[in-house]
Structures are given as structure tokens and as C-alpha cells.
Design a protein around this nucleic acid. Sequence first.
DNA 1: CGTAACTTTGAGACGTGTCAAATAGCGTGG
DNA 2: CCACGCTATTTGACACGTCTCAAAGTTACG
Lengths: 226, 226
Amino acid sequence: MSEATHIEFRNAQPSRVANASGTIDFGMLKMQGVRVRYGRNEEVFGEGEPADYVYGVVSGTVRTMRFTSDGRRQILGFHMAGDVFGLDLGGPHSCSAEAVTACEIVLVRRSAVEKAAREDVAAAGALLTFASNQLHEAQEHAIVLGRKGAGERVAAFLLRFADRFSGRRELDLPMSRADIADYLALTIETVSRAFTQMERDHAIALPSSRRVVMCSRSALEELQAA
Amino acid sequence: MSEATHIEFRNAQPSRVANASGTIDFGMLKMQGVRVRYGRNEEVFGEGEPADYVYGVVSGTVRTMRFTSDGRRQILGFHMAGDVFGLDLGGPHSCSAEAVTACEIVLVRRSAVEKAAREDVAAAGALLTFASNQLHEAQEHAIVLGRKGAGERVAAFLLRFADRFSGRRELDLPMSRADIADYLALTIETVSRAFTQMERDHAIALPSSRRVVMCSRSALEELQAA
DNA sequence: CGTAACTTTGAGACGTGTCAAATAGCGTGG
DNA sequence: CCACGCTATTTGACACGTCTCAAAGTTACG
């Protein structure tokens, strides 16, 4: 059990609507919306708030998360360019979302998405596929949290993150150790030690704390083993 | 990290098709199918198998689960009368399913479900709602695994299980300690100790190991705290 | 250049896993 | 009906991994 770090919204500032529109891409379904900027650590929406919009990341990184009653934070996922988040068609938002870095985000009215799903079967199918993928990801994460040790979790995190950029060897992590810790249900210190250990094992190099060079993908895959 | 228990399929036996039909209920969408019996610990389907059917529990309890590469088991959920499982519209089954107890299960052809979703928007909506609920449940479970200690996990498990029977005070658990352990990502021993401790705290009584009387729901809710 | 946030490192505490063994429960066959 | 054997559960002692607390280093930014 970990003591989740508490993040205050120091940098939270009123969001500015950019004078531009953008598109959310669900595969078969594409939706037009307004493009909005968010500053680092700014809240995009809060758990329990009415889900009036669906969100698509244009640039930057967003975290979705939930809090336990005693204030511990669990990050459910990181969302980057092209990703959709905040799709809660069945009621209010089931989690909160914040900008990890400065972001550009497309907002589409939920009612418009629902209308598209009602009128176009292919659109409804696209949403179903999306929800299905989300579910699969959540289950995968449950396995990581349930069945992997600290080193394995961090290795799995890096590999999955690298895969999002078609397996690039060098990564620039947009999130802090605290974010990684709250995503993997570890402490900052344990995450840091895992990085250090992987560096000692020559699985990665760390030119700086946020920059990761994957020296040996196979070593990471072994480490991930579980 | 836990050593998941290994269950062999001692009792696996060829399933018998009962000479009856049944219905899967997705709320707005109801689908006719064949009713089939499964014996204790019999496999219903395996991870990676083509998802030709969707399953609904008529009676008994089913577990869905995934295995890590080194054989550890993570149970994703328990499914009881009225529950639907095995809905993998986007590809092969993403997990395996086994009968915890002897079961009656309705099988509906996946193609029939897909056809219904294509032809009827309300049907597609019902599926989307279902997937959405599944997602929410998986995220909830990720929080339990990530942020709760052993006692909290077991308390949360009992409360959620009781809620499924509209909050009955007495429960007959269909699953073994090993199943609970693999669901909560603990060991059998730790689960057992958690039960014993809750009994000492007069939060529950244990007339037998599978029968739980919730003496003090509020005590359990405190224990669950997280 | 100074200050605050972030990261790393160390030492020790604590919770859960591991291993071992005793006990209870249950179906089967004598 | 009882005895047997198998499985499930409980309990204990100890090991190990991660958390906690503390402090030093590092980086980013005003």
C-alpha cells in the first residue's frame, strides 16, 4: 500500500480557448470540436462533474485519475496526441483529468457524440470498439498492479510508453516520478530506485531524469517478465 | 507480488447442452441463445480463442481471468446469475473463463449480437452502456489493487459481493480462498488471516469458511477505508 | 544567482509472501 | 456407517520487498 503523492494545482490557471477548431478521431467516427489550451497541472475536468464534453489530445500529455477517500491518488492513464479521454456516456465523469504538460485539447459536446451514435451505426460501432480497447487496457493495468513487482512495473511502463511512439529507442518522459509512482501504485522513491537499478544493469541510460535511452530492449523485456 | 495458485482442471468434463433455450439481458437488448451446463472448474473459453459466442450466467458462478507469462493467475471478475461475460467484439477472447461452481450458461452467437447492434441503434447503445460499466468496474478494481492493503481489499470484496444480493447480511461464498486471493492479488494465507482478523474484530462471523455473516456493516466500511 | 521543486540515496520499519505443519471438511468406498 | 484420503483452510515463524522518514543532490526557473 502506498502513500500517494498529493499534487496541488499551483499552476492552475483559467484555460484559454484558442481561436481554432479540431477533430477527435475514433477511427470510423470523426467529430469536430473547439480547441482549448490548458496549462501544466491545470484541471480539465473533475470526478463527478457532469460529462458534457468528450476530449481529444492534440498536443501535450494528460493524466486521468481517481482519489480514494483518504486522499491517495491512482493515475488510471496518460493520454497523448491522438488519444481520446473523458468519454463517459453513461453519467458524470468517473475520474478527473489534469494536464501533465501544457496541452492543446479538442472538446466535443457529448450530446453531439451521442447524436452521431444514434444516427449512424458505424459511429456507434466505433465508440464500442473504443470502449472495448479501454477496457482491455484497464484489465492489463490491473494485472500489472496485481502481479508485478516494482522493477517489473517500471520496465513494463517504459516498454508500453515506447510502443506508443512506434518503439523509439529514446524517450522524453513528460511526467514526473510522482506521476509514474501514482500510475504504478508505488512510491516516488521506489520508482527512482528502479530507474537507477535499470541503469546499473545497462538496460537503460539516463542522460537526465526525464530522458530515457533504452540500451537493451531485451533486458527490459526480461525485467518486465511476469 | 504474489505467487498465484495454480488450478488444474481435475473436474473438467465435456459440457452438456441442456435441451432448453435462454436469454441474455443487456437492458435494452435481449438475445436468445442455447442453455449449456458446465461442471465445477470446467473451462468455458480460453484466452486467445476466437470469440464466437457471448455468455450469460443463468445459475452458478463463473470466473474470468488472465495468466502472466510465468503462470501467475489474476482473476478479473466473478459473474453470477444475470451477468454477461465474454463479450469481446473486437477480436479473440481477451481472457479465459471457468465455472467456479456448476453453472447453467446461455450462449448467444457473437454474429447475432453484432447483427443486432448494426440494425438497431438502441441495441448498440445497450452494448456501449455495458462496456462502459465493465470499464468502470475494471478501473475500480485497479484502485483496489493499487491503493488498498490486505484487510481493506477483503472488506471491499465482501461489501461489493453483498451489494450484488441487495445487501444481504448473510453470504454464501461460491469461491475458495484461492479464488479470492487471485482476485485481490493476495495469497491464500493473507486472505485467510484477513477473515480471521475481521472475525476477531466482530465485523463478521464465520459459521463455516464459505459462509459469512456481516455483523457490523459499518465496521466493514471502516475497514475498507481507502 | 537564489529558491523551490524534483530526484536520488540511505537506514530502518512494516506488511505481505513463503514455507511448513496442523486442523477441518467432504466425498468415496469398504 | 465409519474409515480413508484428498482438498481446503487456518496458523505460526521467518524472509523479503516496499514504504517511511530523513537528508543530500540536482534541475528548472524567476
